[in-house]
């Protein structure tokens, strides 16, 4: 049976955004099943986020994005319903095998393209570009089961004793931070799981 790698992600987290390409790439380079888990943002689960921390995160993400060669800075904060729309559509995308395409496109839209995902027209363009039917997406946004899944993911993160994103969980060990992927990869390699094109992304 294949090992699972759980990947906790928030559309409101710029660090989640810059982790995305490397995180999904893990499923192409290691014999694992990547289980993406969308969670509610810290600001929507009672975690205090003072202005100094918000500013630090934005400035540090800018430095890290520049280092990684990723676009960043043309921001439209999706906090609130925009986050929920992305989380529920991501569940649909997961079921249809379009998860990485949607997650990467929607998070890039919020953090690098200045797109307001709370508006139908730009969100529809993102969905259709990654191969999702807009009517299915509208139904997904209203899908109570999808929202419940997000609540379960958020509860699981908390049960693990973790709070921030992106967080990865492999064999009971948590790795928090986009800059800890290298430590995670060291563990995956030591576990003998390095294998091109052997992994999958869970539906």
């Amino acid at each position: 049976m294949r090992d699972t790698l759980e990947y906790f992600f928030s559309f409101r987290s710029p660090y989640s955004y810059i982790s995305g390409p490397r995180a999904f790439d893990l499923a192409k380079r290691y014999n694992i099943e990547l289980v993406w888990r969308g969670v509610r943002p810290m600001a929507m689960r009672g975690q205090p986020l003072p202005r100094s921390k918000q500013f630090y995160i934005l400035r540090d993400t800018a430095r890290e994005a520049d280092r990684l060669g990723m676009p960043f800075g043309k921001i439209h904060d999706p906090l609130g319903e925009g986050v929920w729309r992305c989380l529920t559509i991501a569940e649909l995308a997961k079921a249809q095998g379009r998860l990485s395409e949607f997650v990467l496109a929607a998070s890039r839209a919020s953090w690098a393209e200045g797109i307001d995902v709370n508006l139908d027209a730009p969100l529809r363009a993102i969905c259709e570009k990654v191969g999702l039917n807009w009517n299915d997406c509208v139904a997904a946004i209203a899908n109570a089961e999808f929202r419940q899944r997000v609540e379960e993911n958020t509860a699981r993160l908390s049960q693990l004793g973790q709070w921030g994103v992106p967080t990865f969980l492999f064999r009971g060990e948590a790795f928090w931070g986009q800059d800890r992927i290298q430590d995670l990869e060291a563990v995956l390699t030591a576990a003998g799981l390095a294998a091109p094109n052997a992994g999958t992304i869970a539906k």
Partner: peptide, 16 residues
């Protein structure tokens, strides 16, 4: 202003 202008300003100034 809150969702777009302010965060873009913070990032933009940090790069100067």
């Amino acid at each position: 202003l809150r969702r777009a202008v302010a965060p873009r300003l913070v990032v933009g100034l940090s790069r100067k």
